[in-house]
Design a protein around this nucleic acid. Structure first.
Lengths: 110, 110
DNA sequence: CTAATATATGAATATATAATCATATATATA
DNA sequence: TATATATATGATTATATATTCATATATTAG
């Protein structure tokens, strides 16, 4: 029951995940672990929405939506375009959206 | 910019996720959002490990591992079998393990 | 039964996170 | 320039979470 540190000279060689990979992976899943962010991404599945449209549809405060969009934007899960004073957000990570969709389908079958 | 509450009689009918689905989905991703749980699940990808083996391999306290295994067990992401005083844990959700693996691969390509 | 070992659990604590309010910034228009 | 509208941001607060220590429980061997 000894630890494997530098040696790695035992029956199994286990590649531990490096810290950066671990960080990216955990952040990605963290984005999908909050009900509010899930609802926002789910809404953005089909088309773009402005911040206020999202707030209206999901009955959330404007600042709540804005904060969460910043989070999603930092992870590049959403992108935006400006039209006058209005900013439209849309999805920007196919892999993540696919995972979300799959998991929702999975969950819907009880 | 009006809300859609009971009516849903406008251009787009948006099926909001029900609370239970939202809960299941968020919990599933929450399981994968913590570095320690990711490392444990990643370790369990190939084969079963006892609690102490996990703690040794990942240099974690026994109680930390035990607490996290309880979390994963409650979500049925891992299962266990007893052999004497030793309890061996192994993966128990193919869908989740596949998502984890995909996302790790994704992250490894920076 | 006693000792040894493996695992689980409860309480405490430090940290992270989400929502909110108030306000700042940015753009467009009169 | 002044006003209106859309969005972003900083500070605060309440809550959730992960880890740790100490200890409890469970199994086996002697």
């Amino acid at each position: 029951m000894e630890k494997k540190e530098e040696g790695m000279n035992e029956e199994q060689v286990w590649k531990e995940l490096d810290e950066e990979t671990l960080f990216i992976v955990s952040q990605t899943f963290k984005a999908l672990s909050d009900p509010t962010r899930i609802r926002i991404l789910h809404l953005l599945f089909d088309k773009e929405y402005s911040v206020n449209q999202i707030a209206d549809q999901l009955e959330l405060r404007q600042s709540t939506v804005s904060h969460q969009l910043r989070f999603l934007k930092n992870l590049r899960l959403v992108k935006f375009r400006r039209d006058g004073t209005t900013i439209y957000y849309s999805q920007d990570d196919e892999h993540v959206m696919t995972m979300l969709n799959q998991t929702i389908k999975h969950a819907l079958h009880h």
